[in-house]
């Protein structure tokens, strides 16, 4: 008999609306989902589908209007180091070097300098930025900045990693490279990941499971377990078949 999977993070009946004078938008409408430990979950949705709002609720940056979000069975009440976030616009501290950025979380926790630099170095090496420890963000390209963002979030050892369209601002080729790298880091340092994107290829490449969100109101439309062994090939026939299926299922937001 299969062992019951361990649920790491879950959303129960989460709803969130934005209210203006003219109208109310149900950005999230009664969303319930469960993420298993060490699962790589991808949330896929078009432009205004509320997927970033969902991620921000899971991060605790904003609070849902209804429903709860539980980490290891406990309701979350705000942001915290147990849920690390990788932002689309990098959110690096421009006055800090790469090393100081990556070790930021540990610094906040009060870890001593040599220990946190040691841990930070490990992750800087993991994302391939050796030699750039003393560089400032403005000296780096977009892809490199996001690698710092990844390293920073990962180095803090969160229980869950929340990634908000982290490669959205990058060009197609850098994006493919970053997807590959994210996967290889995840293989080496397994963690629960919730990854938000609007790119179907990216979703299928990375995810163990892909959840498709509908647009306004934001609801879970469908779920697709991806059974292709990793690492996957973008042009593999099974990949393309999955892509066709999911693509036809997603909505077009004009």
């Amino acid at each position: 008999m299969a062992q019951r999977p361990n649920i790491k993070i879950e959303c129960r009946n989460v709803s969130k609306s934005f209210v203006t004078e003219q109208y109310t938008i149900n950005v999230l409408d009664d969303i319930s989902l469960q993420v298993e430990e060490n699962e790589f979950l991808v949330v896929l949705g078009p432009g205004q589908s509320g997927k970033t709002t969902l991620l921000n609720c899971m991060a605790g940056i904003i609070m849902p209007d209804a429903g709860q979000i539980l980490l290891d069975g406990k309701t979350i009440t705000g942001p915290g180091p147990d849920r690390g976030v990788v932002f689309q616009q990098y959110a690096l501290f421009p006055w800090k070097t790469v090393m100081d950025n990556v070790s930021f979380g540990l610094y906040i926790k009060g870890v001593g300098k040599s220990k946190r630099n040691e841990v930070a170095q490990k992750y800087i090496d993991l994302v391939g930025l050796q030699g750039f420890e003393t560089s400032y963000p403005h000296q780096l390209s977009g892809g490199m900045k996001q690698r710092v963002g990844l390293a920073r979030a990962w180095a803090n050892g969160p229980e869950v990693l929340l990634m908000d369209e982290p490669f959205g601002a990058l060009d197609a080729q850098t994006r493919y490279a970053m997807e590959k790298e994210t996967l290889s880091i995840w293989e080496k340092d397994k963690r629960t990941v919730v990854f938000v994107t609007n790119n179907v290829e990216e979703a299928i490449y990375l995810g163990d499971r892909v959840i498709v969100l509908s647009c306004m109101p934001g609801r879970i439309k469908s779920q697709y377990p991806i059974d292709i062994p990793k690492p996957r090939e973008y042009t593999d026939p099974r990949f393309l078949e999955m892509r066709r299926k999911i693509s036809d299922d997603t909505e077009l937001s004009l």
Binding site: A59, P79, R83, G105, I108, K109
Partner: peptide, 12 residues
């Protein structure tokens, strides 16, 4: 505000 949000996610 993004930088403040980022700091919050690190438990600051």
């Amino acid at each position: 505000p993004l930088l403040i949000a980022a700091a919050r996610t690190y438990g600051a």
